[in-house]
Nucleic acid binder design. Structure first.
Lengths: 245, 245
DNA sequence: GCTTAATAAATGTCAGACAATTAAAAGTCT
DNA sequence: AGACTTTTAATTGTCTGACATTTATTAAGC
């Protein structure tokens, strides 16, 4: 009855049928799907329609295709790498297209980072610490552009997340952290604010170094409120500009 | 040189080109893409190839299509609803296909839930509390199947996440919580274990009711370790069975 | 002015052809 | 027999052209 529940395309229906089979485990990883011609027969549609369905599934990394004899479409083992990529694309678009407030995204990001701070404090390796310290040094470089500063910030926080040693957590948080980058990029980081951030980053790494979960939590809270202040200033300045213009 | 860097299909290349335009903001929401025929001209390919590219984008909810005169493909505003759906599908598959250990998924899930507990304690409305209490009552019903018990568990935890009042956080966590369900479904909940879980759920809701973030955190910690125990028992039993078989 | 019919633009689907790729099978030479 | 080469068959990738279906606009008729 609603305008959106009209029957979808044949290719969408077929894609959904195969997707269900994969998600419900009726088809297992690396299993070969019937050839396009066979699928066309089975579903009673043309090969073009089947191909469109398969392309939909390929776009979600559910299948991969191989040409040639004994080729075909195979159920794809979804790798963390592929899942990361999709999650980041989706999260970035979700934020940019829905006018998500800076405060909201910032809050979500730091809430999630705090979630992995205790685990990171427990499990961080020397490699994690040195990676984070390398980024902090880079951030102290005066000649760094705002964009590069942001990128380094993301790299540091990514290291924090990875230090928790839980790939599922890393996957889930990658989207939140990376998707924030475009929002962060609109901030102009003054020399003063960079100093402040670098100091807080140092506190954070030192806390992880000494396995002090509480101190790490505090550092992240400080970082959140400071980032929030910076973001608010930018938005306020922008609002003033548009009011006078 | 690696086997994977061979040039992808034309339809994949075209999809990527359009995807870049959308992600980078060169095409804005609700903007109409050229017709399939025009795109075929522009890219110098046939209409079929263009269609396959568009289906890829549609599978990611990046575009929607409308038939008829003045129809065509339009840049789609990615809704939270669509993003949820994709995130859940991806997360579920990632977990089921990569032999993620129960412990890992469980840890990630509760770490993220604890992240929103303080916000939920602050912002929960009476509606959230009553929703959670309704689910707890249902969980105390002896006749409930294991599957329904799990579903109610997910509903309760979903309410907890939503109580944090941050849609971005809700989106990110939906995947983690829902993707756990298949793993949880393998657990047989005895009457004794259900009592225990219901008691912990009550503690959690009471903590939110009194806006006691620390108590909520404690309840979630207890829930995590208890869930972990249940999961480990199941896995141990399964290991015994397969050893004797 | 309102209703209805024609129109045109677009996507959806189909059929058939050929190109490109690739693993297996068959053939050939030493 | 074994190593190398050629052929073959299966399968995906791409193109062309046609027709069906949908739908907003336009025109016609009353």
């Amino acid at each position: 009855m609603t305008p959106s529940d009209r029957k979808p395309d044949l290719s969408a229906q077929i894609a959904q049928a195969i997707r269900d089979a994969i998600v419900e485990g009726r088809m297992i990883v690396d299993e070969r799907l019937p050839s396009e011609a066979e699928l066309a027969d089975q579903f009673g549609v043309s090969r073009s329609t089947v191909r469109e369905a398969l392309k939909r599934l390929a776009a979600q990394s559910l299948i991969r295709t191989q040409r040639g004899a004994f080729g075909g479409a195979f159920v794809n083992r979804l790798s963390y790498q592929e899942a990361y990529g999709q999650h980041i694309t989706t999260s970035t678009l979700l934020l940019s297209m829905n006018d998500v407030r800076f405060e909201t995204a910032c809050e979500a990001r730091y809430a999630m980072e705090r979630a992995c701070a205790p685990l990171a404090a427990e499990r961080r390796t020397p490699r994690h610490l040195s990676m984070m310290r390398t980024e902090i040094e880079r951030q102290a470089t005066a000649s760094l552009s705002d964009e590069d500063f942001c990128a380094s910030d993301v790299a540091l926080h990514r290291a924090l997340v990875d230090a928790a040693g839980n790939p599922v957590l890393s996957y889930q948080l990658a989207g939140a952290v990376e998707a924030m980058q475009p929002l962060m990029n609109m901030i102009t980081f003054t020399a003063r604010s960079r100093e402040e951030i670098v100091a807080l980053h140092k506190k954070l790494v030192d806390a992880l170094d000494t396995r002090d979960a509480a101190a790490a939590d505090t550092a992240l809270h400080s970082l959140e409120s400071y980032t929030l202040t910076l973001g608010r200033d930018v938005l306020a300045a922008r609002a003033r500009r548009s009011a006078t213009a």
